[in-house]
């Protein structure tokens, strides 16, 4: 069972929810797909780290063969190539590794070279296998890293996998939720929170994923995110209170369910609700 945790903006509680769900599960896998700023490892402090580099392929020019026809420059949708004073310039960090320039070069002056853009780490924290994707600063896209993270983790039926997604609803999030069995949308009780919830709500609808919402930082009084859920008929999985104690645990990079019985109960019950929802989806769709 693969559960993706996402939200329209950063700081709503994706890591809080995914880390604590993974920690409260008997044996689980936690995958940090927020490769631009992974932070799940700060909570898990995984041990026995294994590391592997992730590379992409970018063009390399042989100036002796280049005739200056500019077919590659005209082809590149990302404008990663320029041809100035009889010389081809490749902007490596703008390149999206599509390989089109190499295919179109009539002189075979372009070949591929490998470029390291980041790495994936694997470690363990108690019963949790922790995967972290790390994109090097300045790189165009973290998608190759997410592909590697998720390919490493073919779903095992007896093991729960929690995917901590990047914020937003762009390609990088789509890649992260693509193979998920269920999506948890984390939302804040503000107007801004509703705007961001609406973004990811639209995304999971497009992907036709079963989903539910976690309302985080709940206060007394009106909750715009809750109102949105009721209007759109979105299942509310749990309401996590706006709580000083939880805030302090989180700020100290502690895993709440490992420290506090109250939170253990909240996240255990959330896990059961999610399991029921996934089970319900599988049976109703088969």
């Amino acid at each position: 069972m693969r559960i993706a945790v996402l939200s329209g903006k950063g700081g709503t509680g994706k890591t809080l929810v995914s880390v604590n769900l993974a920690a409260v599960t008997k044996t689980s896998t936690y995958i940090d797909c927020d490769v631009e700023e992974p932070n799940g490892y700060l909570f898990f402090k995984p041990e026995n780290i294994q590391e592997e580099e992730v590379s992409i392929r970018i063009p390399k020019v042989d100036e002796k063969l280049c005739s200056g026809c500019r077919k590659c420059v005209d082809f590149c949708k990302f404008n990663a190539l320029a041809y100035i004073k009889d010389k081809l310039i490749v902007f490596e960090e703008v390149c999206h590794s599509c390989g089109g320039c190499i295919m179109f070069c009539p002189e075979k002056a372009l070949t591929e070279k490998e470029k390291v853009i980041g790495k994936v780490q694997k470690g363990t924290s108690n019963q949790v296998t922790v995967y972290t994707g790390i994109l090097n600063t300045g790189e165009a896209s973290g998608i190759p890293i997410i592909k590697k993270l998720l390919a490493r983790n073919k779903p095992e039926s007896d093991k729960q996998t929690f995917i901590d997604c990047p914020p937003g609803s762009a390609c990088i999030v789509m890649e992260s939720i693509k193979d998920a069995d269920y999506c948890i949308l984390v939302a804040e009780p503000t107007i801004f929170g509703v705007h961001n919830l609406a973004m990811v709500y639209e995304l999971v609808k497009v992907f036709n994923k079963p989903f539910g919402a976690v309302l985080n930082k709940c206060l007394e009084g009106e909750n715009p995110a809750e109102k949105f859920c009721l209007e759109k008929n979105i299942k509310i999985l749990v309401r996590i209170p706006f709580d000083n104690e939880l805030g302090i645990l989180n700020s100290n990079a502690e895993i709440a369910v490992r420290k506090n019985e109250k939170y253990r109960t909240i996240f255990s019950s959330l896990l059961e609700t999610v399991k029921k929802e996934v089970h319900h989806e599988t049976t109703s769709n088969s």
Binding site: F78, N79, L81, A82, I84, F91
Partner: peptide
């Protein structure tokens, strides 16, 4: 022609100038 590029507009615009 670079104005509507998804990315690398500066590179393409500079190419035009050159």
């Amino acid at each position: 022609s670079a104005a509507a590029s998804t990315g690398g507009a500066g590179i393409k615009a500079a190419q035009t100038i050159a």
